[in-house]
Design a protein around this nucleic acid. Structure first.
Lengths: 212, 212
DNA sequence: CGGCATCCACAGTGATACTG
DNA sequence: CAGTATCACTGTGGATGCCG
């Protein structure tokens, strides 16, 4: 994109990440840590393959992304965010908070949905209300996506792709109902009515909540 | 712009404000409160007039901006942010923080600069370290722009365009040196060496600082 | 002068096809 | 799998014109 050519921090940020698709690529890499080209393409429905390639090159140039050749078992290139790229998290959180009211039901809007997208709001909005208690691990199966949520000890939670070993509890169901349950927007009873299956100590659930 | 068509809060936010120039228009309105078309055009060097008109229409449609006919002394349309538009402040702050390291010296980069732009970082980054003390008003003349900075009582500061009545102190000089002085990045002595003139109680200055 | 609308050259985008 | 190539289309920037 053309630079705005303005000596302003916001304009400079937009010069770097204001291009179409760029912030969504950051979103994918923030969720998945290391991605193959094809993972990115699947996680970004609607992107043209030439644009994805072009953006990845630009983002590598500007120090947001690194490209590494994975050893034989994988034998492909992996894309990762750099530290500088991960520093976009507060901006993405703020934009996501602002954009949340604009989301409609994907059934009626026809919007694309990917189960793994729920990892981002989980990471950004779910708080550990008792950070000093013993750490807890939660197994989540949101749609077809398996995630592990664990308390980080500072009030935040870590969300990793994959299944967990010996979780304190497990939740399975539609992604956005799981999110609503863990941020305290719906009760366990009404989440169950919407298809959520919860196994384990109920009071594990009380440990989690939304912001503030 | 085309919608991403994704059921994701970030994608929805970008659908609304991801267009080129849109966030910079929000920046202008956040600094100036009420703007004429021409004020916006002057504050956004490089924008084509048709694009400014088009963006303002889109932003009015999507509820970010209102247009009001000012009464006879002014006799022109004024553009303002709606409450929803002002809610973008955290996102703009986060992006600005991220973009700040990318700013170079406008002398060498050839970037455009407007004195009033400094009001945004002043408002976002300058903190009142003793919110419980009596409120204080500071007269600032950054380049050719007159601003009033006053403590809000909650640790933040308000920054308004225009001159102040009976300020506790006054600062005059190059915009970014004034910003560096008020966020505590440079001492009064070295700010003076860079062309800042400060009048009033020196300890007024100690009341202010950057984030954290 | 303030607030656009119109026109044009060109850069960015999206769909598809093709390749090592 | 990880792209590159092609091409129609849309968005952008610059200039200019119009109207109260």
């Amino acid at each position: 994109m053309r630079s705005y050519g303005q000596c302003c921090a916001l304009a400079k940020a937009l010069d770097a990440i204001g291009d179409r698709w760029t912030l969504l690529i950051v979103r994918e890499l923030m969720i998945r840590e290391a991605c193959r080209y094809t993972d990115l393409k699947n996680g970004l429905p609607g992107i043209a393959t030439n644009l994805l390639a072009e953006r990845l090159n630009e983002m590598e140039q500007s120090g947001l992304v690194t490209r590494e050749a994975a050893p034989p078992p994988v034998a492909t290139t992996l894309f990762r965010l750099t530290a500088r790229g991960r520093e976009l998290e507060p901006a993405i959180a703020a934009l996501g908070r602002w954009g949340a009211p604009l989301m409609g039901n994907p059934q009626t809007t026809g919007d694309e949905f990917r189960d793994h997208w729920v990892a981002l709001p989980l990471r950004l909005y779910v708080r550990d209300r008792r950070p000093k208690d013993a750490p807890v691990r939660l197994a989540i199966r949101a749609g077809e996506e398996s995630l592990t949520l664990e308390t980080a000890g500072d009030g935040s939670v870590r969300v990793q792709p994959g299944t967990s070993e010996r979780p304190a509890a497990s939740i399975q169901g539609p992604p956005h109902t799981i999110l609503a349950l863990l941020t305290g927007k719906v009760s366990l009873a009404s989440a169950r009515a919407k298809g959520v299956r919860f196994e384990g100590e109920t009071k594990t659930l009380e440990r989690f909540g939304g912001p503030e």
